[in-house]
Design a binder for these strands. Structure first.
Lengths: 254, 254
DNA sequence: CGCAAATTTGAACCAGCTCAACCGTAGTGG
DNA sequence: CCACTACGGTTGAGCTGGTTCAAATTTGCG
């Protein structure tokens, strides 16, 4: 797929490059390789189960737009959302090394994604070490997000958790230029939020209401407006270093 | 470093190969490369901080023996242990792509480890795709452990959490042949356990006592005896598929 | 309009927390 | 040998953050 006629922002690799750009100086070579992997574009409807627990992995996806939830279900119906995948995130990248999934991947919105052929990715990783390095970084960053989620779940109060997840989502969207300030379309129900934060739906609601009453944010179904991000970061104890988005000019060139 | 004179079990790569052996058929080529990386052996005393939050990464370690905790500290002293690293586990492998650590790595016991020189690892990964694949798998498995920890923290009861972590530790030690059955030396205090499970020390204690009273296990400082592992798995709802230790004979050869 | 999904609120309850104290065991130094 | 200390574990009591159950209200949408 030629990309010469496309503007930078239309390249399939755009969001991923933006994310990596926080750490690497991403050269055309790597961007071209990613674009080259993006031969097939797929779209999923909301609630579509992209991968189900027990399924064999067939593909790796690079999200172009939309929100995807990675969730685990216990026998009795309890659900835990392990992470949220946004534009520029890879799905099943490292997990595709396994025989089968232990998680569901659910499209929460309309999702546009590029489907990578796994053998082709493997070939390219084997021969293109810069690409491998770049994708390893993306992978390591995702692992860092999981670790921070563990900290939230284990040691933060309900109020801190809610504030923290909002701060994280804001920051992650900023990295891929999908948020600046003002109202944010956030296609998560309070039930989703509860399942991310390991809380009950009802207490999640009350906690959000508390933050609304404190004038830190406004909330409607599908939309939040952060009114005082500084204060929100304060209650969350939010430190963004775990995102490792340093925007260094002396970064490694890939 | 020649390994010809060593028995299989003495090779530095032994535990890592055992872990990978659940999925790959690990050939001599990869094992030799790992052995070759293990040029420098280091030991840490209990409580030694191998890496501290904020430190730049200097090395990658392969644990030969001992237990290491990866922990995060909040401003007010709350601590969350994100994971436990055992023999055969790599420390700082993917995180070494970052400028600096956001976690502490603490030796909980005497720890023997092999120190890898990062540039050398990078070179080898770039040129040896089989090695890269094998280590990527180890990495993906660790990510899977984190995801399961998130499920525990978010959606399991105190009793399920305690049972689950014991099942996980048993299984992980079995994979590297460090446990079969009977008494298990477990160098974690109840405070450590509490910080892994996101619970208070006191409630952790009471929960353990409950399992002891139910005759599922015996507990002393530094030692547990699992009396009824089947029952313990039952209360935990333990499914070992997230460890991805399938011991398949048709696995990919690396 | 009418249905379904999402949110909000109230009320009662309880799992897990904090505070406080005590016990056992293993050094350690006089 | 004993006193002292430190650390890990145990137990009680009271409290509270978060849960469950139940029901009402709002919102989105065909």
């Amino acid at each position: 797929m030629s990309v010469k006629s496309e503007t930078e922002n239309d390249r399939p690799s755009h969001h991923l490059a933006a994310k990596l750009g926080g750490f690497f100086r991403v050269g055309d070579q790597v961007a071209d390789m990613v674009d080259d992997l993006c031969r097939e574009k797929v779209t999923f409807r909301p609630r579509h189960r992209i991968v189900g627990a027990g399924d064999a992995y067939g593909s790796i996806y690079l999200i172009q737009s939309g929100w995807v939830l990675r969730a685990s279900h216990l026998q009795d119906g309890r659900r835990q959302i392990v992470n949220i995948a946004l534009a520029g995130d890879l799905l099943c990248f490292n997990a595709s090394l396994f025989k089968k999934s232990t998680f569901d991947l659910i499209a929460r919105t309309n999702v546009e994604a590029y489907r990578f052929d796994i053998p082709r990715v493997m070939d390219m990783l084997a021969s293109q070490s810069k690409l491998a390095l770049a994708l390893s970084w993306a992978n390591a960053q995702e692992e860092s997000l999981l670790a921070e989620r563990i900290v939230s779940l284990g040691r933060r109060s309900a109020c801190e958790k809610v504030a923290h997840i909002f701060c994280e989502i804001l920051e992650r969207l900023r990295i891929v230029s999908l948020y600046d300030q003002g109202p944010l379309r956030m296609p998560l129900s309070q039930e989703d939020l509860a399942d991310i934060l390991g809380m009950s739906l009802i207490h999640t609601n009350r906690t959000i209401r508390g933050l609304v009453r404190a004038k830190l944010l406004r909330y409607r179904a599908g939309e939040v407006v952060i009114l005082d991000e500084t204060a929100l970061r304060g209650v969350a104890g939010f430190e963004d270093d775990y995102l490792h988005f340093t925007r260094q000019t002396d970064g490694v060139f890939v």
